[in-house]
Design a binder for these strands. Structure first.
Length: 274
DNA sequence: AGGGTGACCTGTCGGC
DNA sequence: TGCCGACAGGTCACCC
């Protein structure tokens, strides 16, 4: 479910409501991808300062330390005053004075990890190799020359470089196909072979696709909803993702599907040039 | 060092 | 109807 837009929409849906809350209790369910990294009881009594996002991670800043949350493939967060008892797929509850934050994650590829500081080794193991933030401006933002330089170093298909997240973060399997369609670039093209103008077009396309999805409330390919229960509807607007055999919305040519690194890629053979 | 592959886990869907 | 395999939005550890 969650690529950058879904994570960002989730963040926006509860960040202001949880800010300033004091943790009353924290509970864990079945094991997630990584252990929490501290005794869960020690979270009680801390105050939630706010919620930031880095790539697909949410950073829950506490008055001491922070929690890194990742939604994996199937995770979602809910934040509400009164929640029912945890179900089989509810694996983390943070009960606070302002509501309970609950992680629901059937596949358990998600994670909740405690770190003393963002720059300590525990956090940096997860955040250290992340690429640029596609929606950020200014210093540390999505810088075009850096993007072009990043692509130049890679001999792999451009689609896989986008997914890898070390050049630019947050572009998942859906939006990688969508951005490449928007930029008119064949997903199989080696990243290093992109001309500067085409890299510039891709740079713009990534921002557009992600920003539009955030504005629309995230994708809802199956079951996305924000932490306040709003559902998104990017599905209705996908140009290529999930549309194998259907006519391209721009030129009517049937959309093609292929597999790159075990992930499905969708593209228009007419609109997207090798 | 970069690239490729398998692994993690559960639910759902299509085909026989 | 029931069973079984393929597949799903992510990313890491591991090989070469």
């Amino acid at each position: 479910m969650p690529e950058l837009p879904e994570v960002e929409v989730t963040r926006q849906s509860f960040a202001s409501r949880i800010a300033g809350a004091r943790v009353l209790e924290a509970r864990l369910g079945k094991p997630l991808r990584w252990p929490l990294g501290c005794p869960v009881a020690t979270l009680a009594g801390r105050t939630v300062r706010g919620v930031r996002r880095r790539g697909k991670y949410l950073l829950l800043d506490l008055d001491r330390g922070l929690l890194l949350l990742h939604l994996g493939m199937s995770g979602s967060l809910n934040f509400a005053l009164a929640l029912s008892p945890p179900g089989v797929h509810d694996h983390f509850d943070l009960v606070t004075t302002q509501g309970t934050l609950r992680l629901h994650d059937p596949r358990r590829f998600g994670a909740v990890v405690y770190a003393e500081a963002e720059d300590d080794p525990v956090a940096q193991k997860l955040l250290g190799r992340l690429g640029m933030e596609p929606l950020a401006d200014g210093v540390g933002g999505f810088d075009l020359p850096t993007f072009q330089a990043g692509l130049k170093r890679r001999q792999t298909a451009i689609k896989q470089v986008l997914l890898a997240g070390d050049v630019v973060v947050g572009v998942g399997n859906i939006y990688a196909s969508e951005a490449l369609f928007l930029a008119g670039i064949r997903p199989t093209l080696r990243a290093a072979k992109l001309s500067r103008p085409r890299a510039a077009r891709l740079h713009t396309a990534i921002r557009e696709v992600l920003a539009r999805a955030v504005a629309k409330g995230g994708s809802t390919l199956r079951d996305f909803s924000s932490a306040s229960g709003e559902t998104g509807y990017f599905q209705l607007e996908a140009m290529v993702y999930g549309r194998e055999g259907q006519p391209c919305r721009a030129c009517d040519t049937p959309i093609k599907m292929l597999r790159q690194g075990q992930r499905a890629t969708f593209f228009c053979p007419q609109c997207q040039k090798p």
